[in-house]
Design a binder for these strands. Sequence first.
DNA 1: ATGAAAGCGCTAACAT
DNA 2: ATGTTAGCGCTTTCAT
Lengths: 263, 263
Amino acid sequence: MNQSRSRRPTIIDVAKRAGVSKSTAARALTGSSNITEQTRERVVKAAMAVGYERNHLAVGMRSGRSGMLGLVIPDITNPFWADVARGAQDRAVRSGASLLIFSSDWDPAAESAHLRALRRARVDGAIINPVADNFDDLDRFGLPFVFIGSSAERFPDVSSVGSDIGQAVRLGLDHLVSNGHEAPSLILGPKSRLARARFLRTVHEHCVERDVDPAILALEDGEYTVEGGRHAMRRLLERPHLGHVAVFAANDMMALGAMMAGS
Amino acid sequence: MNQSRSRRPTIIDVAKRAGVSKSTAARALTGSSNITEQTRERVVKAAMAVGYERNHLAVGMRSGRSGMLGLVIPDITNPFWADVARGAQDRAVRSGASLLIFSSDWDPAAESAHLRALRRARVDGAIINPVADNFDDLDRFGLPFVFIGSSAERFPDVSSVGSDIGQAVRLGLDHLVSNGHEAPSLILGPKSRLARARFLRTVHEHCVERDVDPAILALEDGEYTVEGGRHAMRRLLERPHLGHVAVFAANDMMALGAMMAGS
DNA sequence: ATGAAAGCGCTAACAT
DNA sequence: ATGTTAGCGCTTTCAT
């Protein structure tokens, strides 16, 4: 207990215990060649004995690779990004890496601060769902990275993964129309979001194809959250209108909020 | 573009540019005393000019503090832990730290691997929702840490934060009883989980107080997930029984699954 | 107030 | 096959 509280053992402790030089110990531990099976065993045993654990800070320092990856998303609390985070984490672990996760909360300033943190931490790469409109420091970013989300298309040079919003909207509308709802009310995200424009554009196209005037559709905005959906739904319900038979929300959180708008 | 792709600037680059020694540059940048306001300005300006960003690996190496914290939870995909993660992350960022998040997926082996990763990364501390029954390496863990969850009470010496399951169950049952449901069916977590025993014990107490025989309560187990709740509910519905008027599930995910059991 | 130098733990190039 | 040494980028004595 008293010994276990002391300084963490270094490779030198291992080397001493095994009676070899620290480079030999390193070779044995990294699985390098040029090492007698006998000495390797001795070193490994010594490492176990002293409870040695390689210091990744030191390794990163020497190698220039920290073994860490970054993930910057708007909000880990949203199930969509929780799934993203989970997938990223599993993949990272499988490659022996760790994942630093940051939620920007749709705040460009926070996002920028998080990116700085990632650079200082010397992560080997990052996955980013950008919320900033202008990513002008992009070329100076200096980190390998991939974008997530539709806003990524503002940066055609950057690799990105996004949802096919157009197809999603079409599938949703097809479903509603086939159930007799020709003109569902809409609950969309904030005006600043690119995904919103994409959503709306597809709705318009779909309407035109059906000879429905898009202008008759009731529409409300809100944050991409349960609360946002709830408030938007309330505003819809307040309208002097014959009642909203069907509502199409931009994501699950908003839909949930809309369903709860009564309470 | 070509220059920006080159080696990240170090404090030496800053020092050179400012025409001082690297130690002076360090002093200026760390806000140390004993520095002329004039030279500090010059150094700061030089740092900006070359796009200097402090290398946290190196800092951690020297100081022994990595500026990173660890979070090990069963599953980031569960909204409860997503909230936990969000809170931890916000707090960490406020202290200038970063958060390494790991999901163990209820797998003790994965948990143990993640803890090893945290030690190697030299995190300054960790928040852990343990899933392993035996945490016998606890004294050798060698990291400052806090536990989350009811399983933490197996380790009375460890600081922990948990929910008051007893009170939660009582509130839930009170609500049901006051709505006329004297003997709700139960959907609980896996038998291995300590929280389940706690839940069940409180239900029994509550029943006894109401002169209800706990044995008449229908009860099903499942994983703490939407799927687990759905399956459990299906099994409940299959029972030759007069129908389940009320169901009390152990968490929101299971309740959601139960509600969806028909589809 | 500033510079020179040591050292954190590790690995790889360079001896032997 | 193994030992010696340099150096990753930083902060902090210790001199001056």
